[in-house]
């Protein structure tokens, strides 16, 4: 830790946690369901970055395998979330998160 500007694992983890927090802030402050889903993708990508960084700095392929699984889950989640958003838009003619409280059984 002699030179703080020399890039190591910590730098990647800081970028990853900042990206995660931007995603959390997006979920908290936006009303549009599509943008909320995008913020969730940002959070998943932040986790991917820290997995890849740990994998690189420990020479362990398991972290990269986890990134693959997260990518598959994220694509599935985006597909289902957008399908639900389209269904809600057809029913209520809007995609604000407030409309989701009308959903019942």
């Amino acid at each position: 830790m002699s030179n703080a500007l020399h890039v190591g694992l910590n730098h990647y983890l800081v970028v990853s946690s900042l990206l995660f927090m931007i995603g959390v802030a997006g979920v908290l402050v936006r009303k549009n369901v599509i943008v909320i889903l995008m913020s969730i993708e940002l959070m998943l990508n932040a986790v991917n970055l820290s997995f890849a960084a740990f994998s690189h700095f420990n020479q362990e392929p398991g972290g990269q395998v986890m990134v693959f699984f997260v990518m598959a889950i994220a694509a599935a989640e985006a597909a289902i979330g957008l399908a639900i958003a389209v269904a809600v838009y057809r029913k209520f003619n809007g995609i604000e998160i407030k409309l989701f409280e009308n959903l019942k059984g």
Partner: peptide, 20 residues
């Protein structure tokens, strides 16, 4: 969109900042 951000914007950012 008439109001793209939800109402209590400042307090939400405050919370997000604390978690960060």
């Amino acid at each position: 969109e008439s109001q793209p951000f939800s109402g209590q914007k400042i307090s939400n950012f405050f919370k997000a900042g604390i978690i960060a």
